[in-house]
Write a protein that binds this DNA or RNA. Sequence first.
DNA 1: CAGTATCCTATCGGATACTG
DNA 2: CAGTATCCGATAGGATACTG
Lengths: 121, 121
Amino acid sequence: MTSVTERDVFLADCPARTTLDLIANTWSVVVIAGLGRGPARFNDLRELIGGISKKMLVETLRRLERNGPVARRTISSAPAGVEYRLTPLGESLLEPVRVLSRWAQDNADDFVSAQDAQLVG
Amino acid sequence: MTSVTERDVFLADCPARTTLDLIANTWSVVVIAGLGRGPARFNDLRELIGGISKKMLVETLRRLERNGPVARRTISSAPAGVEYRLTPLGESLLEPVRVLSRWAQDNADDFVSAQDAQLVG
DNA sequence: CAGTATCCTATCGGATACTG
DNA sequence: CAGTATCCGATAGGATACTG
């Protein structure tokens, strides 16, 4: 029994594509990877993630919250604040995110040199 | 012996972050995944990848070409045209891209329902 | 501490028309 | 077939100032 509606990233207007649109961007990947280290407060995340603005961090967290992978919790005990953590869905996203990040880290020098070669040539 | 310059996606202005910026977007992921099926012509890719415009396909291919994962070749034999294929670097990117795409396909329904719940609530 | 609100620019990305 | 060129609206994203 195959379902009539496929889930294929090659198809426009498919939930799989919509999902890819939401997770396949730098800030989503880095925020998920950051929360993979454990629950964190807003400003902890800002310190961990170099170059992210308050605006983008808020927007990224809200979007991930809306779609499931991230949960937000208010801390009443001192020091008061908020805590973000991965949901089970977010935990399952951790592996893809880490595989991609690791690739970026391992192949960064090849990318850079290819770009340099282009600039020189 | 640890190198002085780290390769960490958490660091702004790090080659790893720059690399992530270039690959962590929908069109890059889908184009790499598409070329993972084998070498393809420009219009073959346009047919395979739903919703991509000529403009975005050209720009994505050029960017991936500049940075290494994709190679472009002119076909002189009939029917004449061009062929895009993955380089060895591109092949190594295939696994991360497939892991991410598969996650999107497998969890698309959870994402959608989470969003629906938000709309209702 | 954890945001909001506003402004402004750059890039994304579709539509359309044209080219060798 | 495989683009290029141009126009245009929508979104990304930084800077800054303000808030409970």
